[in-house]
Design a protein around this nucleic acid. Structure first.
Length: 423
DNA sequence: TCTGGGGTCCTAGGACCC
DNA sequence: TCTGGGGTCCTAGGACCC
């Protein structure tokens, strides 16, 4: 079996460049939500030494604004571009596994013919660029972990015009691994890097030579798998069928700390509503909901508090009303007066398809009615292009603090709770 | 002063059962 | 009442990813 990994180069920056060609050749960075830190950099920005995850205030300090173009993220655009890239890949290759917004694994059709695989992959790179404007690199190898390393090689080698790297030759793999820092291996993070370095293990080759059983007992089965993958063994057979999403989360860091329950509740309510909408968009329902709240790590002058509460949803649901109700219950059980809150989030788990789940016999909620109501709300909101229909508690919370902005595009609201408007 | 948001998987340990 | 091994299930927390 041969795996390919298609990886979009500097994806968010590349998306911005498609729609604004004047950004070509310039140092460009894209910032996270709330403009907190850098999440994508052009090659020119990397050359300036701006690190990934760099806090925004630092680049504002040391760069000339004419030198670096700083852009707030537009995730709707990136998702759309991602769909286009993935559909081109899917037209050519089987068993595509979309790993992230800018990466996908797939199977190569010729297990023993590197030349044909390379030609096919190179054709896809050209096709993606032609149809979407996004530059992509492809790595090919016998495991996903090695394919990752190969795609990284393709990206970093300026003489490789095809942007495809096939890494199947044993002596070439050995050579590459001996020059690869352990920290650059997929699955080896900061903790493991430190821990292994203290044992004298610094390169991918040194790591791959360790006894697998020792690595397993020292760390975990996941780390052992990474080791075997570096040896060319495929240890993560994931079928695309089983790749259904397992949770949906919405969370934000607040612009400042909140003390009042109403402020935190306002945010939690919005996150629950976003989860519900997301579930409905995916035709899923959830059985559990978790709310978490957290203080500010960086404020040593404030007492730190962090807690979460998981509640079972009486009958699996994607109804905004049900989820908001559960979220408020959960929040009530963990909110403590007197602490400063800097972040909150809502997560829904135990997801299942909307069709085919058995409503609980003891459910207090008429799921069918809710479902119809929610579809109507979504339809109105989709047509209006903004959230004109919301739950009454949301409206009142916002009316008190209209400046709050967790989601884009909230305009005036129609009061609307459990009964549809007459006429 | 200032560091995102959304995910997955694994393990240890407690509760409970036979 | 005490004692023991072995098993399952659940949850919190850690580590990793982009």
């Amino acid at each position: 079996m041969l795996y390919g990994l298609a990886d979009c180069n500097n994806f968010f920056v590349s998306c911005e460049r498609v729609f604004n060609p004047s950004l070509e050749g310039r140092a460009v960075v894209v910032l996270s939500n709330n403009d907190g830190c850098v999440i994508s950099r052009s090659n020119e920005a990397k050359a300036l030494g701006i690190p990934m995850g760099c806090p925004t205030f630092q680049i504002k300090d040391y760069t000339d604004p004419r030198q670096v173009v700083i852009i707030s993220a537009n995730h709707v655009l990136y998702r759309d571009m991602s769909h286009r890239v993935m559909s081109v890949i899917g037209e050519t290759f089987d068993a595509i596994e979309i790993y992230s917004v800018d990466e996908a694994f797939f199977r190569l059709p010729y297990p023993d013919d590197d030349v044909r695989n390379r030609e096919l992959a190179a054709a896809v790179v050209r096709k993606i660029f032609k149809y979407t404007g996004i530059p992509v690199s492809i790595g090919v190898a016998r495991s996903r972990t090695l394919a990752k390393i190969a795609s990284h090689m393709a990206k970093k080698d300026p003489t490789n015009k095809s942007r495809v790297q096939v890494l199947t030759d044993a002596s070439q793999i050995a050579d590459v691994l001996s020059r690869t820092d352990l920290s650059d291996v997929w699955g080896i993070g900061r903790r493991l890097t430190v821990s292994l370095a203290s044992r004298g293990i610094r390169t991918a080759a040194q790591f791959a030579a360790l006894p697998p059983s020792m690595v397993r007992s020292l760390f975990s089965v996941t780390v052992e798998r990474t080791l075997m993958e570096l040896r060319g063994e495929d240890c993560q057979p994931v079928s695309p069928v089983t790749m259904a999403r397992k949770s949906i989360m919405n969370s934000r860091t607040f612009p400042k700390v909140f003390y009042r329950r109403e402020d935190v509740a306002d945010a939690v309510l919005t996150f629950a509503e976003m989860c519900a909408k997301h579930l409905r968009d995916e035709h899923s329902v959830a059985s559990t909901l978790t709310v978490y709240v957290r203080g500010d790590y960086h404020r040593e002058d404030l007492p730190f508090y962090s807690n979460s509460c998981k509640v079972r949803i009486p009958s699996p649901s994607s109804s905004t009303m049900v989820l908001v109700h559960c979220a408020m219950q959960a929040l009530n059980s963990i909110f403590r007066r007197g602490y400063a809150y800097r972040k909150a989030g809502v997560m829904v788990t135990d997801l299942q398809p909307e069709s085919g789940f058995q409503p609980s016999l003891f459910s207090q909620v008429d799921e069918q009615k809710h479902s119809k109501l929610m579809k109507a709300v979504d339809k109105i909101n989709n047509m209006a292009g903004a959230k004109v229909v919301k739950l009454a508690p949301q409206v009142s919370a916002e009316a008190a603090r209209p400046q709050r902005n967790y989601t884009a595009g909230r305009d005036e609201a129609i009061r609307f709770y459990s009964a549809p408007p007459k006429g």
